[in-house]
Simulated assay, not measured.
Amino acid sequence: MIGYVTLGAHDVEAALPFFDKVLGAIGYERGFFEGGWAGYGPKGESQNLYICPPFDGQPARAGNGIMLALRARDIAAVDAAHAAALAAGGTDEGAPGPRPEDSKSFYGAYFRDPTGNKICVFAKADAA
């Protein structure tokens, strides 16, 4: 079980509107922004996703081959998160839809945040 995830950002405060919109679309909310860190988690629960500057003081950059995948409650939330990402300055890495194309069990969308981190938002058939 994963306890939490951190994503590096060039400017955490500037990244907040992007993450507020995208994560809000899947039922997450920002629990705090303090000391250069922002914490997000499912509404009413503990934070499990943190946006922060890299600990080593070097510029934030996306990891090659690293992707964060967040489960949404349904396909409407996947569509909303992808639209929010693009509207808030993210870049498209794969429009919402079934993966593979004929799948009846996995529906996902892919995008990058302004730092370049790759993110997937998905719903499983049991949530559709």
Rank of each mutant, 00 (worst) to 15 (best):
G24Y: 00
A25W: 00
A25K: 01
I26E: 01
G27V: 01
Y28F: 14
E29V: 01
R30H: 01
R30D: 00
R30Q: 03
G31R: 05
F32P: 07
F33H: 15
F33C: 07
E34Q: 13
E34K: 12
E34L: 08
E34D: 14
G35A: 08
G35V: 06
G35S: 07
G36N: 08
G36R: 03
G36H: 11
A38W: 01
A38L: 02
G39L: 02
G39E: 02
Y40H: 00
Y40D: 00
Y40V: 00
Y40G: 00
Y40K: 00
K43M: 00
G44C: 04
G44I: 03
G44D: 02
G44L: 02
G44T: 03
E45F: 02
S46M: 12
Q47D: 06
N48E: 11
L49D: 01
I51G: 02
I51W: 02
C52L: 14
C52A: 15
P53D: 06
P54C: 06
F55A: 15
D56H: 10
D56A: 12
R61L: 10
R61C: 09
R61D: 10
G63D: 13
G63R: 12
N64F: 08
N64D: 13
I66Y: 06
L68T: 05
L70P: 01
L70E: 00
R71G: 03
A72S: 09
A72V: 04
A72K: 02
R73C: 08
R73W: 08
D74E: 05
D74Q: 06
D74F: 05
I75F: 08
I75N: 14
D79R: 14
A80G: 08
A80T: 09
A81Q: 04
A81E: 02
H82P: 07
H82S: 15
A83T: 12
A83W: 12
A83F: 09
L86Q: 11
L86F: 14
L86G: 14
A87C: 12
A88D: 13
G89T: 07
G89W: 03
G89R: 03
G89Y: 04
G90K: 10
T91A: 15
D92T: 06
E93F: 08
E93G: 13
E93L: 11
G94T: 13
P96H: 00
G97C: 01
G97R: 03
P98C: 04
P98A: 12
R99V: 08
E101M: 12
E101A: 13
E101L: 11
E101Q: 09
D102I: 13
D102K: 13
S103A: 15
S103R: 11
S103K: 13
K104C: 03
K104G: 11
K104F: 05
F106Y: 15
G108L: 08
G108Y: 04
G108W: 04
G108V: 14
A109Y: 05
A109R: 05
A109K: 05
A109S: 15
Y110T: 04
F111E: 03
P114G: 10
T115A: 12
G116K: 06
N117A: 07
N117D: 11
C120G: 04
C120H: 04
C120L: 14
C120S: 12
V121N: 02
F122L: 13
F122K: 07
F122I: 15
K124I: 11
D126M: 10
D126I: 09
A127N: 15
A127T: 12
A127M: 14
